[in-house]
């Protein structure tokens, strides 16, 4: 399955590096990354393939939550299907 990882918060040095290295540690393959500034907030969105990941989505989510907390940003890990079903007919 594919997961959408979003990082929202104040822009700091090394956000991309820290989140992606945490992903790499768990065997999560990042397919695509976009970054933008929305309403003065930093927003990074990653599409990740987690079929070969060595943790469950829940554990990955907890791990990235922790990484996010350390940097003062909010990280969400959600199934890609949520967005597809909500925003595509």
């Amino acid at each position: 399955m594919k997961a959408v990882i979003t990082v929202i918060g104040k822009d700091t040095v090394g956000i991309l590096a820290k989140v992606s290295s945490a992903c790499a540690e768990e065997g999560v393959n990042i397919i695509e990354v976009t970054q933008s500034i929305m309403q003065e907030l930093f927003a990074m969105i990653m599409l990740a393939d987690i079929k070969d990941a060595n943790v469950t989505v829940d554990d990955l989510s907890k791990k990235l939550d922790k990484v996010g907390d350390e940097m003062g940003v909010k990280v969400h890990v959600m199934h890609e299907d949520i967005f597809n079903s909500m925003h595509k007919i």
Partner: peptide, 16 residues
């Protein structure tokens, strides 16, 4: 990929 604003809209709906 899904549009950024759509992703953020969904997250905002759940979070806030």
């Amino acid at each position: 990929m899904i549009e950024t604003k759509n992703i953020l809209e969904t997250i905002n709906m759940i979070e806030n």
